[in-house]
């Protein structure tokens, strides 16, 4: 990543942290209804963040990576079939997860990009899975590629089908896994996301079986996470949920995670996708 881009990202991030402290200061004088005021302040912070989203930088880098000859085959991803035909990126994201005959699997957008990296470019699945999620010091190519691809569905409605039996099966499995309690604390996804209007600390928890909440949550990813200085995908989001559930780790791009994404996507159907999001 060129240093100019890094500087721009840092300056954006500094602005956001400044905005956050202003919001906190604004919230302080209100003692009455402190709870509501705090939540309102968080909402204002979110609005201020939205003006300047570093996700754009990931989108640009992803577009470059998409067109660049890479891997042992030294070809680009421009002939990748994301479900609408080879080379069609526009609108592909909002139609995933979907069943891909060539892979014999239901794949989310990230799994499909990885599939193209293996089949077209000659990367190995092991290489891709080695370090899929970025950090402050390590920029993941996958996160940039996903950001680029999803940005090409901006303004379109989530339109995920369960017409194929494999798609219906993935949805059913996702629904089951969502409710499955296990681990040290007997947690399931549904423990936090199975009821309306709940919070963990001050964080509002979407009720993910409800279309409206599921829609809002689903279009909230991928997102630039200000607190982590990093772009995060839906694969990351679900991985981190399992971490907090005190479960062992789902393997990267595994059927279980794709089934959960299928469950969420179908519940979110009809919601307009606004492009990569930004969060605290």
């Amino acid at each position: 990543m060129p240093s100019r881009t890094i500087e721009r990202e840092q300056s954006m991030r500094n602005k956001m942290l400044a905005a956050a402290s202003i919001v906190v200061l604004l919230a302080l004088p209100f003692v009455a209804n402190a709870q509501d005021k705090t939540i309102q302040a968080i909402e204002r912070y979110r609005e201020m963040l939205a003006d300047d989203n570093p996700a754009e930088l990931y989108e640009l880098r992803g577009a470059e990576l998409w067109r660049k000859p890479r891997g042992s085959q030294q070809v680009s991803l421009e002939q990748c079939d994301l479900g609408l035909g080879a080379g069609i990126v526009k609108g592909a994201y909002v139609r995933t997860p979907r069943y891909f005959v060539d892979a014999g699997k239901v794949m989310d957008i990230e799994s499909r990009i990885a599939w193209c990296m293996v089949t077209l470019q000659g990367f190995t699945a092991g290489e891709i899975a080695k370090r899929p999620f970025g950090s402050e010091t390590y920029k993941s190519d996958m996160e940039a590629l996903v950001t680029y691809v999803v940005s090409q569905s901006k303004g379109m409605k989530i339109d995920v089908s369960t017409a194929q039996p494999q798609e219906q099966h993935a949805y059913d499995m996702g629904k089951q896994i969502f409710a499955l309690r296990s681990g040290s604390y007997d947690f399931a996804c549904a423990t936090c996301h199975g009821d309306r209007g709940k919070r963990i600390r001050l964080q509002e928890l979407p009720y993910l079986s409800d279309p409206k909440d599921a829609g809002r949550a689903y279009i909230g990813w991928p997102a630039y996470r200000v607190s982590q200085g990093e772009m995060r995908t839906m694969q990351w989001r679900i991985n981190d949920c399992f971490r907090q559930q005190r479960f062992p780790e789902p393997q990267y791009l595994s059927d279980s995670v794709n089934a959960l994404i299928m469950f969420l996507a179908v519940n979110a159907n009809g919601t307009v996708y606004n492009g990569p999001a930004i969060k605290r």
Partner: peptide
């Protein structure tokens, strides 16, 4: 079936072993 899927897909990490399943 979902349980079998999870058993196939999850890996131990840190203190979180597969016995958590």
């Amino acid at each position: 079936e979902a349980m079998a899927m999870i058993r196939r897909d999850f890996q131990p990490r840190g203190s979180a072993g597969l016995n958590r399943l």
